[in-house]
């Protein structure tokens, strides 16, 4: 539904988005993850048709964003990063206008506007001008706008920004529902739990480059493989440490942290972890505890984004 092909955006010498290729299928929720300034918003702007890419192609439902921009835009619901509506318009007026702008008939427009207002809990703000709304409500108006025309593809830039926890939960369920209806959802975030909770797949982007693209489960497996182990021994002395260092590979040795009798290191993969366990058992020291730390997306994110730059 949403396709990006070697999408690149350069601003002079700065490459904001670097040969990004990915796709979002109908019914799929893709979490677009990256620290601030990683190129998430730029990518979403390109996909929304607001900016052209320097090179590469973007398609929505088969419509090229440059050759068939209008058709592509008809299939998008887009929430910009810092959504603003004309301050003098009331929320209801704005939503009705947007619905008409997106080609809905008058009655239909009113119905849809009422529906999204209800979905996003904006009922008591409908008669307020946009300028009078708080940040959270503004964000919700933007979401309402994106959902208005019931588009097959949703591009949401930091959609959880202004929502309180309850609304977040509601909105997560709502997104799932939308995906269940066969919509392709691409949302960006720099907050991990929310991505973790609802995204089927996560795309991590750093300095414009995609770092990982895959099923969340597979990613988590990968993260688990790379998860650090922590163990406690009865005592730690120089001899033991020398022996341990002798056993460890170079990168593993580098990651070794010693805190009294508690040690922590990062094995290169699962096999090495098992090898380490066996090696420890063979030693004289008594192993009081040996556990693999639960890998979070945070770990993955950190490990990927703190990599040495190319």
């Amino acid at each position: 539904m949403i396709e990006a092909e070697a999408l690149t955006k350069r601003y002079g010498s700065l490459t904001a988005v670097d040969a990004l290729t990915f796709g979002v299928e109908p019914g799929e929720i893709l979490g677009f993850l990256g620290p601030n300034g990683a190129g998430k918003s730029t990518t979403l702007r390109i996909l929304s048709g607001f900016q052209p890419p320097s090179s590469g192609r973007a398609r929505i439902d088969g419509c090229d964003l440059q050759d068939a921009s209008l058709q592509a835009r008809q299939r998008i619901g887009y929430l910009p990063e810092n959504f603003v509506a004309p301050p003098e318009l009331r929320v209801g007026e704005y939503l009705r206008f947007r619905a008409r702008l997106k080609g809905l008939k008058r009655g239909e427009a009113r119905q849809r506007a009422a529906r999204v207002v209800e979905t996003l809990g904006l009922e008591d703000r409908v008669r307020q001008p946009f300028a009078a709304l708080s940040k959270g409500y503004r964000q919700r108006v933007g979401l309402a706008d994106a959902l208005l025309a019931d588009p097959p593809a949703l591009l949401l830039d930091e959609p959880f920004g202004g929502l309180d926890p309850v609304q977040r939960q509601d909105f997560r369920n709502f997104l799932r529902e939308l995906a269940g209806q066969g919509k392709a959802v691409l949302f960006s975030s720099h907050v991990l739990p929310e991505v973790e909770e609802i995204a089927d797949r996560v795309l991590i982007i750093h300095h414009g480059k995609a770092r990982a693209d895959g099923e969340l489960a597979r990613l988590q497996q990968r993260a688990a493989d790379e998860a650090p182990v922590q163990f406690r021994t009865s005592h730690v002395d120089e001899a033991f440490l020398t022996a341990l260092r002798g056993f460890l590979l170079e990168s593993e040795a580098d990651s070794l942290q010693v805190d009294g009798i508690q040690l922590r290191l990062r094995p290169v993969d699962g096999a090495r972890r098992q090898a380490l366990f066996r090696w420890l058992a063979a030693q004289e020291v008594e192993v009081a505890e040996f556990r693999t730390l639960t890998p979070t997306l945070e770990d993955l994110f950190r490990s990927m984004t703190t990599e040495a730059r190319p």
Binding site: G49, F50, R73, V84, P86, R98, L101, K102, G142
Partner: peptide, 15 residues
């Protein structure tokens, strides 16, 4: 509109 940022929603609408 450019200054306020309302141009982005407008220009990404199917118009």
């Amino acid at each position: 509109e450019h200054r306020l940022g309302t141009l982005e929603p407008l220009l990404t609408a199917p118009i």
